[in-house]
Structures are given as C-alpha cells and as structure tokens.
Write a protein that binds this DNA or RNA. Structure first.
Length: 540
RNA sequence: GAGCGCGUAGCUCAGAUGGUAGAGCACCUGACUUUUAAUCAGGUGGUCCUGGGUUCGAGUCCCAGCGCGCUCACCA
C-alpha cells in the first residue's frame, strides 16, 4: 500500500510533491543522513499570517518528502529567529517606548523586554513565536541567532566567510548603490563599549587571525576584533548564506520580495563552498484593493481575525491553494474557504489514492484528513445568523434544529464550532451595520398591540399560532392589502407585505427576514416582547 | 531597469497528466407559505486578452504582443 502511495506521489502534480521531488533530486546528488527544512523570522516583531503560511507550507513539503522517501530519511524543521539583529526603530505597538528607545542599535536580545515578561525583547518575541507555532501543533526545532553566534556554532563558517572576504564583497558590491558600497561590510562588529551592532567600514581583515579591524565611530579609535564567538554578526544576505552552510539547510522558501536576496545569498553560499538550499518563492498576500499586506499599514486580515471567524484548517486551505498566485486576503474569502475545506473533506472519502494526493486536505492533515459530517454550509449559516438575529449560539441552534431536524451540538460538534464563528461574525459585522427604522404613529400602535397579543399567548405557542396572531394584529390600516389579490379563506381583508417589512425594519434593523411566526417561536415570546418594548422605547 | 504573477459568465474565482467550458454570488422563473426565506427545483448569461505555432483536437503546451498588478534595487 505504502509503496503504491509513493509511486503515485512521484507523479503527482500537487505542488508540495513538485517541491519535495527537488529535494529528493538534491539528496540523490549529495546523499546525507537528514534533510533540514528552515523558516526564518525577522526581528520586527510578532508572528503574522505570513509566518503561519510559511510554516504551514513548509510542513506540507516536508510531509510530501517523507511520503516520497518512504519515511526512510530523517527530517527536521528549524524555526530560526534573527534575534541578534540590531533594533532599528521602536515599534509602535509596544509599551515603554522611551525605555526601548535608549537601546536602539543593540541586538534584540540585549534590549530589555518592554513587556517585562522576559529577560530581553528578543526573548519575548521568541516566546511569542513559539507559543504561536505551538497553538497549531507544528513540529519544529527553535533556533536563536544569538544563541548560535555566542555558542560558537557559526564560528567555523564565519571564518570561511572571512577567508572569502573579497569574493563576498565582489558579489555584494555590484548590487549596492555607490554611496552604500563605500561603507559596506559583510561583518557587523558589536561594540564592546556600547553593545551596539555597528555598521562601519572594515579597514582591514585578517583571515589567519580571524579578525577584522574598524574605526570606532564615536572615539575614532581603531579596534580589532575576532569575527567569532558572537563578537560580530553578519549582514543580512551573507548571514543567510552563512546560516545555510553552518546548519546544512536543504530547503527554505521565501516571499517573492526576497527573490534577489535569495539569489545573492546563494552566490555567497557557493563562494564559501556551500550549496544553497532548494527554494520556492511564494506570492505575497494582498488586501481587497490589491495592496500588499503590511503590519504597519494594518490592512488585510490578521491571523487572529481569521481564527475569530473560521478554523485553522480553513486558513491552511488558503495557504495550500496556489502559493504562486497573488491572493487577496480579506474577510470575504473566509466563508468560501471554510465551505471548500468541508467539500474537500467529503470528496476525500470518495476518491482513489491518486485523487487523494492532490486533494488539499491530504496535505493539510499530513495524509490523515478526518471524516466530518457537515449538514449545513458556513455561507448558509452566516445568512441564517444575520437574517434570524441570532445573537447567541442557543438561538442559532434553535433555527438549525428547525432547518435540519436531529442536528444538535452533540451530534455535530464541528458544526458547533462553525456556530461560534458565525456568532462572532454576527456581533462584529451584522449588528453594527443594523439601522432600525423609526415607526410612525400608526405603526407604534400596531406594535404595541402586537406586544400585548403576544404576551397573552402560552409560552409554548406554536409557530402557526403565533403567525395567526401576527396576521390578526396586522389586519388594520395602513397594512391592509390594496391589490385585492390576497384573501383569507373566510373572507377577511388580506394583510399586505408592508406589515412584515415594517416588523423587520423596525425590530431587526434589516429589510427582510424569516417567516415571523417561526422566528418568534425560536427566538422566544419573551425575547420578542422585550424586542418590541425596546423598539418602542428607542423611538419614544 | 530587473524579477514575479495575473487576464475564463455582471462580480469573485475553479478548471491534475491536452478530449463537448464550471461553481458560488447576482439576476429571472417556478414550488412551498393566506403576504415575508434562510429552503427546494429549474433557467438566462462566456470571441476563455490578441495573433501565430505544435496537435486529429488547445482555456490548458510553445512563441510573440497587449493590458493590469505586485516585488526588488536603503534595511531585514
């Protein structure tokens, strides 16, 4: 069975397999004991939706690779934090900005934690990142740049970079503008005096001694320092190349904004005798207007927002789909992905192995998608929640039970999760957008009468009985039917549409709604009466 | 300037290995309901950006062009 699956995987056009085959080819060329996947995180801050995407996608490739190799080759996923980068500017979204401002330029792991929960800002961010990855159950190994540098784990490779100093400069300089090229150095010494990561020209380097020499920008003093032991860090692109070599990275994907960086880092990697990892450039996420999503602009969706309205699995589906196409990430895409996720789950049960391997849920669930019965779509649920004024899960379940008899939170726990998401949607989007029309004099009188009539009904009155009462109260001006088309069986005057429209516009703040008797039966007589009282008080 | 992506129904988008163009929404009709849908059954709607090429056959593969968008070139 397993070998059969493997054979199919070898010809699958699903992108994780395409990627994994690149790694297999790499492995065949240069055999090694284990394959190392990497993802990196900048210092600028907190985990965001792109972070999730990168880890989720890398995990999919990793799993595809394991299937392709019959799980005979060990794999690791390194989550690498650039926590030794100098703090360039004070982020907007943190407390104690003044304190942090005093430490500008220092490695993040030397800046005190503005939140006061960790020894340093860098460690704070690292903890946030790990907590974030853990929520999703990702399997990974965390590495801190600071820890690697100071423990000497990078020393050997740092010396190799130093030995190829001129070659590295030869690669970097043509990519820089003239004024920047004047001062560029791949090595950034960390000042013994101030602790700041210095961006200064290197006036001499000594490969044998393993040192560089620079001029202290404040004192003008000439300083010679070893490049090892955490006394120097590397500039971004050489740093990436060094890390690939030092850690033996085989695969790392990156956003398309980093295409040039990947290229240059790859050249540097080769220059110091390494082999750049296999890679993949994914497209960036756009907001609904097609603008790039950025944390500073605050456009697009955050991961918290997605998870407030839908499951992590639906977000994984979003990440699986066409990683090379620019995709808009805004609220409207959520319901579709939730429903498609369940469609794929359903389809999976009916598919053969070949189809299964190109089914997104196979990749999302690492080959073991669950079997879930979802009797109602999320799109319908959202329509239901907004048309039924269901402010809480109990009310919404009342409507669901009416619509799909026998379906309960107990029989369908996954649907219950969707119900919670739908309620969030209602509170955040539907409720604030409601505009309640003011009733006129005659309408107020009718509403008041309706309130009294409903209060006379037994608490277990049926939807039909309630509907009859609603008609009876509405059988008055200005709601009588003028068209002559509507007639009751016993010849009483008909009630026009206006009566019901008024109820929805005044009571629910919407143009249309469900059959009113059914609505009251589920919503509750008492709640309905309170709602009418509220409307009368609001307009009094 | 360099790189990447996109162009399919009114809108948002699917269309593995080439084989009679699809979905959702919107719209229209009907059913159900003494009038209100969130239900159900149907339906209208497309020069698949353009022009070549390969092929028995191209939305799909190749070349060229047009249009749109994004990214990079300071830092990570």
């Amino acid at each position: 069975m397993a070998s059969n699956l493997r054979e199919i995987a070898e010809h699958s056009s699903a992108w994780p397999f395409e990627e994994a085959r690149k790694i297999v080819a790499r492995l065949n060329k240069r055999p090694k004991d284990e394959i190392i996947f990497a993802t990196g995180y900048g210092p600028s801050g907190l985990p965001h939706i792109g972070t999730f995407g990168e880890v989720a996608r890398t995990t999919m490739v990793r799993h595809a690779f394991r299937v392709l190799t019959g799980d005979k080759v060990k794999t690791r996923l390194i989550a690498f934090s650039d926590d030794m980068d100098g703090l360039r500017k004070v982020p907007d979204n943190i407390p104690n900005k003044d304190m942090v401002a005093e430490h500008l330029g220092k490695p993040l792991t030397k800046v005190p934690d503005p939140f006061g929960t960790h020894p340093s800002f860098g460690e704070h961010n690292n903890a946030r990142l790990r907590a974030f990855l853990d929520v999703f159950g990702f399997e990974y190994e965390f590495l801190s740049a600071t820890a690697c540098y100071t423990a000497g784990r990078f020393d050997e490779t740092l010396l190799r970079v130093l030995a190829h100093f001129d070659a590295v400069m030869g690669i970097m300089l043509p990519s820089l503008r003239e004024e920047r090229a004047q001062t560029y150095s791949p090595f950034l010494p960390i000042s013994e005096r101030t602790g700041v990561v210095l961006q200064v020209p290197v006036i001499a380097h000594d490969g044998k001694a393993g040192t560089i020499t620079y001029e202290d920008p404040d004192t003008g003093e000439t300083v010679t320092t070893p490049v090892t032991g955490g006394r120097c860090k590397l500039q971004w692109k050489p740093d990436w190349a060094m890390r690939w070599v030092a850690l033996g990275i085989d695969y790392e994907m990156a956003g398309k904004d980093l295409i040039d960086s990947v290229k240059l880092s790859g050249e540097i990697c080769r220059a110091i005798g390494g082999r750049p990892p296999e890679g993949f450039n994914y497209e960036l996420f756009l907001d609904e207007k097609g603008q790039k999503i950025s944390k500073s602009k605050g456009n697009g969706l955050t991961i918290d927002e997605w998870l407030r309205y839908a499951s992590p699995e639906s977000l994984s589906l979003f990440m699986y789909r066409e990683p090379k196409a620019a995709k808009r990430l805004y609220f409207d895409v959520i319901p579709r992905h939730v429903d498609e996720y369940h469609q794929y789950l359903d389809a999976y049960q009916r598919q053969d192995d070949r189809q299964r391997l190109s089914n997104p849920v196979w990749h999302i669930h690492s080959g073991h998608p669950p079997k879930i019965d979802m009797p109602i779509t999320f799109a319908m649920l959202l329509a239901l929640v907004s048309s039924s004024n269901a402010e809480n899960a109990e009310t919404l379940w009342g409507f669901i039970g009416r619509y799909r008899p026998g379906v309960t939170p107990q029989t369908h726990p996954k649907l219950n999760e969707l119900v919670d998401y739908a309620i969030h949607y209602f509170r955040d989007f539907v409720l604030p957008a409601k505009t309640y029309r003011e009733p006129g004099e005659q309408e107020r009188a009718a509403l008041s009468d309706l309130r009294d009539a409903l209060s006379q009904l037994p608490s277990d009155a049926s939807a039909g009985d309630i509907q009859d009462v609603v008609y009876e109260v509405g059988r008055r001006e200005p709601f009588l039917d003028k068209t002559g088309k509507i007639k009751t069986r016993d010849g009483k005057p008909g009630v026009s549409l206006e009566w019901f429209n008024m109820l929805y516009q005044v009571l629910l703040g919407q143009e249309k709604g469900p059959r009113f008797g059914s609505f009251v039966a589920v919503y509750g007589l008492k709640n309905t009466i309170e709602m009418i009282d509220g409307a009368l008080a609001r307009s009094a």
